[in-house]
């Protein structure tokens, strides 16, 4: 009972935030709405007895990635988006994709209704930190390693991109600016 109420509360909040993210012309409002979506999703994970995933969602998406997005928007001081006429065809593409997603959702509903109801195991610990950690370092070790290597590559790439700024001619320009001040 309480679970159902909470589900509809947070699901409604997530959908409202998602709609407001798409419809706002101001990029900062869109970013704030997206944070709202992430927080609502985290709350939904919590109601599914997966606290670790919920907190990771907040820590990584709401706490780190969106801060960078908000940062960029604030630094560039983006103006409100003007609707572009030459991108009109995107409405058709978006509508088509939306219909496909809707069809998929209905298919999932149909498939879920078809499957026999499984007994809920009260001792299930799938959402617990311990079981996630154990699964990550035994069964799914290879994907974890691959993701780790990819992240390392991304870090090295970022460092190389920053290093480019230290080429001699760029340094001269920045020094000249310093002298002007």
């Amino acid at each position: 009972m309480a679970g159902t109420v909470l589900f509809f509360l947070f699901a409604g909040f997530a959908i409202a935030c998602a709609v407001s993210m798409v419809y706002h012309r101001n990029p900062l409002y869109s970013a704030i709405s997206l944070i709202g979506v992430f927080l609502a999703l985290a709350a939904l994970y919590l109601t599914l007895a997966a606290p670790f995933i919920a907190i990771t969602q907040i820590l990584v998406y709401a706490g780190a990635i969106m801060v960078l997005v908000v940062f960029v928007i604030m630094l560039l001081n983006l103006d409100e988006d003007k609707p572009l006429n030459r991108l009109k065809y995107l409405y058709a593409v978006g509508g088509g994709l939306g219909l496909a997603l809707l069809a998929q959702t209905f298919f999932i509903f149909y498939a879920v209704l078809k499957t026999p109801k499984a007994e809920v195991d009260p001792n299930m610990t799938a959402g617990r930190t311990m079981s996630i950690g154990r699964a990550m370092y035994t069964e799914y070790l290879l994907p974890v390693e691959i993701v780790g290597v990819m992240l390392l590559m991304a870090i090295i790439g970022a460092v190389i991109l920053v290093r480019k700024m230290e080429q001699p001619h760029l340094e001269l320009v920045s020094e000249g600016e310093d002298e002007k001040e």
Binding site: P51, I55, T56, I58, G63, V67, V70, F71, M74, T129
Partner: peptide, 25 residues
């Protein structure tokens, strides 16, 4: 009593950055 108390505190306090960043902007 949630079994991820440490992460909870870190995550929630990290959301507090928005208050300051948005206030400044």
């Amino acid at each position: 009593r949630i079994d991820i108390g440490v992460l909870f505190v870190l995550a929630v306090t990290s959301v507090g950055v928005y208050g300051i960043a948005l206030a400044g902007w």
